[in-house]
């Protein structure tokens, strides 16, 4: 369920949509659910931006490594 992919906001239209780039694929994505600005990394599901991405995967893994230390 719920295929979603992070992309980068290239343009914000005044029609409720934004142009989001995924390594060269451009999707017109609805932006009604998230406050965004150009350059934001966003998660897109079914043509709709559902969240901004707070950190890249590498950063996320680093923070998880630190958090998971608590278990050992």
């Amino acid at each position: 369920m719920c295929v979603a992919l992070p992309g980068i906001v290239k343009e914000i239209g005044d029609d409720g949509y934004a142009t989001v780039d995924f390594s060269g694929n451009t999707v017109r994505a609805a932006r009604g659910l998230v406050d965004i600005k150009v350059g934001d990394h966003v998660l897109v599901h079914a043509g709709c931006i559902i969240q901004t991405v707070q950190q890249e995967e590498a950063e996320e893994l680093q923070s998880l490594f630190e958090e998971l230390q608590a278990f050992s």
């Binding site: 719920c2 609805a30 659910l33 599901h45 079914a46 709709c48």
Partner: peptide
């Protein structure tokens, strides 16, 4: 169809 992830997408459709 959809779970919690997709339901909000339909609200955006309904808004429009």
């Amino acid at each position: 169809v959809g779970f919690e992830t997709t339901v909000p997408v339909y609200t955006v459709l309904l808004d429009e």
